[in-house]
Design a binder for these strands. Structure first.
Length: 576
RNA sequence: GGUUCCGUAGCUCAGUUGGAUAGAGCAACAGCCUUCUAAGCUGUGGGUCGCGCGUUCGAAUCGCGCCGGAAUCACCA
């Protein structure tokens, strides 16, 4: 193999072998690290070995032999093509199972001492939430939980876009064409009623473009604090908030803190002055202020209009500083669609130019759009998938699927409605979260979201079956325990290995801000368990020790699944 | 044109800190319910990992160049 660097890694086995980089061909340095289930590394350093083999394969074999005799816990086999596959012995995995099952907080990583703010949802009070917002909400909520599980303190926030020209449009249409309709009088959810106003305005503008002038006058009145305009504005916003609240509750979304743009839109102006003083911004002849980022491969960015008013960027600069300082944040995650990639690139650069050390602790969790088979959702063409409708549709489909023979065994009549919600929502959340956030995703409204295969209900079902076995075991007076005297089968060993990977999966999901890591990991466990379960009877096992070990194993599978799906905001029912 | 991202089975997606024969699900076909819940399990078919060159003992993975697609580059937010 010569003197080349030669690295083999088997993360899933928890063992890493390193062939030294600048070591003469006749010698070889071996370092093996064992990845504990806590996610720590136990370093096992082997002495410098001397081999005279010229081919990597021969070296691998010799190394395997050496490991077998000197470190029995580690098994080496199949040393071909110059690298070594190492695995830990079954005894190790029995110990691991014992430790995992005893750890009530398995999967919760130790505190990092870091405080992270996650901003997501950030709706505007003009229209109801649609499928795109659902992806945003689910991502933000799940990533927050994942960051918490990774040991961080997390503050969930949202910034409600409740002011501006576009908001005035729906208010204007309401005044002109809705005869004083309210959510009560119309029987409509508040956000949907206001959404109708917004759509109506588009029609009005088409008929007579001059209505825009009226809207601008309205905005000026709003900024002057005109009581009548302000009153209508806050009244209609109230309707929308009530509507959002219902949707959030249905989705299981909550925030620790809610910001409103009418409170924050003036922030950031003082930073413009600071930038000018520092010489990193320039003022043009017309009075407008810019930041030149052409050196960075970007463009000039406007920060203050010539009339002295601020823009979106100005506000974001200001709110970022306020939040970092007010909460002593270590990091700030913004869950915002990928159409704003450029905006956040610029935001970080400008903050960095202003000398804020935390500028590079801003992370834009950029996610792709949800598209329909015929392309993007367009409200004008009525192809928008409404969040409330979708939730209701999923409920109905869960109900329908549950009507199949053999289902709902042991589910009490009074619990069924809630179960249908849990299954429908589980299918929806899993469907959205299993996809890598940065990829755009396809949703076909004509095809329902599946309940078979790699889906939320599949994992829910797996859990329900385990719980069913455990209930029966309890009735039989059996308890779970495991001692070192048990020998696990190959399938059982595989399951324990998978379970042991949990902390590192949580860490990976947190560092990549990706619930998809958790979703796919949960699926792997459920898939592996179903294969195991199919041909390994648990309750019929006559060997008491083995029976108890199996009960321990499956209850650990259930609890890891519960924790992982909890990070996705998905509930796992006891029966279904 | 600049920046960022994506391209893996018919479809939806994993796998991307370089490793063995690239994996699931859906769809198709063939099996398994006197046995802990068949929303499950087993099997068959299905791949130039967009293309090319390079680095390497070894590339879906890294580099460069193409091709195709998306977003963005507003005195909008």
């Amino acid at each position: 193999m010569g003197a080349e660097a030669f690295i083999s890694q088997r993360a899933s086995e928890g063992v890493k072998v390193l062939y030294g980089a600048d070591i003469p061909a006749s010698t070889l340095q071996v370092t093996a690290t064992r990845k504990d289930f806590e996610g720590d590394y136990t370093l096992v350093v082997f002495p410098l070995l001397r081999f005279s083999h010229t081919s990597p394969a021969a070296t691998g074999e010799a190394l395997g032999e050496w490991l077998k005799s000197n470190c029995p816990e580690i098994q080496a086999y199949n040393a071909v093509q110059g690298f070594l596959n190492l695995s830990l012995s079954p005894v190790y995995w029995v110990r691991t199972l014992q430790e995992i099952s005893a750890d009530k907080d398995f999967g919760q990583l130790p505190p990092t001492g870091r405080r992270i703010m996650v901003e997501f949802s950030s709706p505007n009070t003009n229209k109801p939430l649609h499928l795109g917002h659902v992806r945003n909400n689910l991502l933000g909520s799940s990533v927050s939980d994942i960051l918490k599980a990774a040991g961080n303190e997390v503050i969930k926030t949202t910034l409600v876009n409740d002011r501006g020209v576009h908001i005035c449009k729906s208010r204007y249409a309401w005044m002109k064409r809705f005869n004083g309709a309210t959510p009560e009088s119309s029987g409509k959810k508040g956000d949907h009623l206001v959404g109708d106003c917004y759509v109506e305005f588009a029609r009005m503008e088409k008929e007579d473009p001059s209505v825009m002038d009226e809207v601008h006058r309205m905005l000026i009145k709003w900024e002057e604090g005109d009581p009548e305009v302000r009153d209508l504005w806050s009244r209609m916003n109230g309707w929308v908030f009530d509507g959002f609240e219902q949707t959030y509750r249905a989705l299981g979304i909550s925030f620790d803190r809610t910001y409103y743009e009418h409170d924050t839109y003036l922030l950031g102006k003082e930073l413009v002055q600071k930038g000018l003083d520092m010489g990193v911004f320039v003022r043009d002849d017309d009075g407008s202020v810019w930041c030149d980022l052409t050196d960075e491969g970007l463009d000039r960015k406007l920060l203050l209009r010539s009339d002295g008013t601020s823009v979106y960027m100005t506000q974001d600069l200001g709110t970022a500083r306020r939040r970092f300082e007010e909460f002593s944040l270590d990091s700030h995650v913004y869950v915002v669609g990928d159409e704003q990639n450029y905006h956040f690139q610029v935001l970080k650069k400008v903050l960095s130019k202003l000398g804020f050390p935390w500028a590079d602790q801003i992370y834009h969790l950029s996610y792709g759009m949800v598209e329909l088979p015929e392309g993007k959702m367009k409200s004008r063409e009525g192809t928008v998938v409404d969040a409330d409708d979708l939730i209701e549709k999923m409920y109905n489909e869960a109900k329908e699927a549950s009507a199949e023979p053999g289902r709902l065994s042991g589910v009490a009549e009074k619990d069924r409605d809630k179960l249908f919600r849990t299954i429908g929502l589980g299918a929806l959340k899993y469907f959205i979260l299993k996809v890598d956030p940065k990829k755009k995703m396809l949703f076909n409204p004509k095809e329902s979201i599946d309940f078979n295969g790699n889906t939320g209900p599949f994992i829910q079902y797996t859990h329900a079956r385990i719980r069913s076995i455990l209930r029966k075991a309890e009735d039989l007076g059996l308890d779970a325990s495991v001692d070192g005297g048990v020998v696990l089968s190959a399938k059982e060993t595989r399951l324990v290995k998978l379970l042991a990977a949990c902390p590192s999966k949580v860490a990976e999901a947190a560092s990549e801000f990706s619930p998809a890591v958790i979703a796919n990991y949960s699926y792997d466990i459920a898939k592996e368990f179903n294969q195991y379960y199919h041909d390994t009877p648990v309750l019929k096992e006559e060997d008491k020790c083995l029976l108890q070990a199996r009960l321990t194993l499956i209850s650990t599978v259930a609890s890891v699944l519960r924790r992982m799906m909890g990070l996705l905001g998905i509930e796992l029912p006891e029966r279904m």
